[in-house]
């Protein structure tokens, strides 16, 4: 075995031991389902900001976004403002009202706001299905990175990643995951910071790199995409992030509404740092290797061939962190949807806290293992799966969450119609007119959300209003007694 391999194994082993230790620590502080799903509502703004950023930053950022900058240059960076418009919408319209409500899951919100068990069940089922698809993409990315860098079979990387992530998640739930997310955010930034000077030094600085890239193609350093294309893609990202269940669940775990606001700001600052580092690395790799066969290989080649063994190993651990931090958030949201919203409501309403904790933990394992099979079938490329599933989630959740929290008159029939209709419209557009996006510039997510909004308003107007008692916690500034933070540390 070469010394480079030993360095990598040592770095990965130290990382896995640390996250497992945090998992065990979380296990010792987890005695109820509330501990497991919302960490006793104890998370502060710094850890919370890292949680929100780490959940959003995934394999898509390290592989897909870096590859996009490699191929098209600078202008893709402006897409981040679309994501931040989504976060701003969440901070203004979603987070305060959602956090005041002392729930455990996003389906809890749907059930309470619309006074409907059917809407709650539909929301939980949609969360489980769509996030299982999302997990497939994350596992596939881990397999592809491992086979590109080390030539090992993808299944080995997937098993290592899911075993480690499922272990710390099932042991300590949100409490462990939050502190692991904090560590993972630091590792992502460290990996990127180690890479940036290496590529810049090769060119003698930023300006010579820019001049070289401009000589390859002036669009790389200026505008590859038109403003219309940037706005259309930004809108899709914004709609997705304004009401993403795996992010909203984490609001419940923070101390209070103001903590959530600060955490969103810290998360945006972290995203700006990570996004601009990924851009510089993508540009640098284009300068170093102008004709790679696939843009998605840029990040793996950077770690394996450009950086020193130790720095390359830390960069790869940063990539693993990006994947694992997204996977743990998904496992928590899908396990919670199964255990809290389906099992405890439909199968065993008298379940004890110990039983619910056990079902949550078993669900983490089962819902983590199922996507491995899908990942091995390779139904599509990673970035495409990530983008498509997020469009579907926005198409059924944006309206019931963002408009549902702003408009009292929305009803349960309106919510069910909005979720089902938004999903169907997004699906129909994806398989028909999406192909001619270049001519009309209208994305499937915009069609899905527009249809969802139309159905929500029309059907709600035609059906009886939601009982005032259900709405008080969202619209009358009444805090739910369950929403308070219970210190345990």
């Amino acid at each position: 075995m070469s010394s480079d391999s030993l360095v990598f194994i040592a770095v990965v082993a130290a990382y896995l031991v640390t996250v497992t230790a945090i998992g065990i620590w979380g296990y010792l502080h987890t005695t109820t389902e509330e501990d497991f799903l919302v960490a006793g509502r104890s998370i502060g703004p710094w850890v919370g900001g890292c949680v929100l950023a780490a959940t959003q930053i995934s394999a898509g950022t390290f592989v897909g976004t870096l590859g996009r900058h490699y191929f098209t240059g600078v202008s893709w960076i402006w897409i981040w403002f679309g994501a931040w418009a989504g976060w701003l919408t969440s901070a203004l319209l979603v987070a305060p009202r959602l956090r005041r409500f002392g729930a455990l899951t996003v389906a809890d919100y749907i059930g309470q706001r619309f006074a409907s068990e059917r809407a709650r069940t539909l929301a939980a089922a949609l969360i489980i299905v769509s996030y299982t698809i999302y997990l497939t993409a994350q596992f596939q990315a881990s397999g592809e990175i491992a086979s590109a860098v080390f030539g090992v079979r993808p299944i080995y990387a997937m098993v290592l990643l899911i075993a480690s992530t499922a272990l710390y998640t099932l042991l300590g739930g949100v409490r462990s995951s939050s502190y692991v997310d904090f560590l993972q955010t630091m590792l992502m930034m460290l990996g990127l910071f180690l890479g940036v000077p290496v590529v810049l030094q090769t060119f003698g600085g930023l300006q010579p790199l820019g001049q070289y890239l401009e000589s390859l193609d002036p669009r790389i350093t200026a505008w590859w995409f038109s403003w219309r294309e940037i706005l259309a893609t930004s809108l899709a990202f914004g709609l997705t992030l304004a009401a993403a269940p795996y992010e909203m669940t984490r609001y419940y775990s923070m101390r209070d509404v103001q903590t959530v606001r600060y955490a969103i700001g810290i998360s945006m600052a972290i995203q700006a740092i990570i996004g601009s580092s990924v851009m510089i690395l993508g540009l640098g790799m284009r300068g170093l290797f102008p004709v790679l066969p696939s843009a998605d290989q840029a990040s793996s080649i950077l770690a394996a061939s450009v950086m020193s063994p130790l720095a390359g190993a830390l960069f790869l651990v940063g990539m693993m962190s990006a994947i694992m931090s997204t996977v743990n958030s998904i496992l928590i949201v899908t396990a919670g949807a199964f255990a809290h919203d389906l099992y405890a409501r439909l199968i065993n309403p008298r379940a004890s806290q110990q039983r619910l904790l056990l079902v949550n933990r078993v669900a983490v394992v089962v819902l983590g293992v199922v996507p491995v099979w899908f990942a091995l079938q390779r139904f599509g490329d990673v970035q495409a799966i990530v983008v498509e599933q997020s469009k579907f989630i926005a198409s059924f959740f944006f309206v019931p969450v963002v408009i549902g929290l702003s408009w009292r008159r929305g009803t349960k029939e309106g919510a069910v119609a909005a979720m089902a209709g938004g999903f169907a419209a997004c699906l129909a557009w994806t398989f028909t007119l999406q192909r001619s996006f270049a001519t009309h510039g209208i994305d499937a997510v915009e069609v899905g959300v527009a249809m969802s909004a139309l159905l929500f308003v029309v059907v709600s107007r035609l059906t009886p209003p939601t009982p005032a008692a259900n709405l008080a916690v969202f619209f009358d500034g009444v805090s739910d007694a369950r929403s308070h933070h219970t210190p345990v540390l």
Binding site: V74, S75, I77, W78, W80, F81, W84, L88, A91, L206, Q207, P208, L209, G210, Q211, L213, E214, S215, T221, A222, W223, V257, Q258, R261, Y262, I264, G265, M268, A269, A272, S276
Partner: peptide, 30 residues
């Protein structure tokens, strides 16, 4: 040959302004 232009540098200025404005707003909330 000028290298990077305002599509590059403009992002850093705009992002810093956006985040600073966000924190000013957040601090003024209850």
């Amino acid at each position: 040959m000028n290298g990077f232009g305002w599509s590059f540098y403009g992002f850093f200025i705009a992002a810093a302004a956006w985040i600073a404005a966000y924190f000013v707003w957040a601090a003024r909330q209850r």
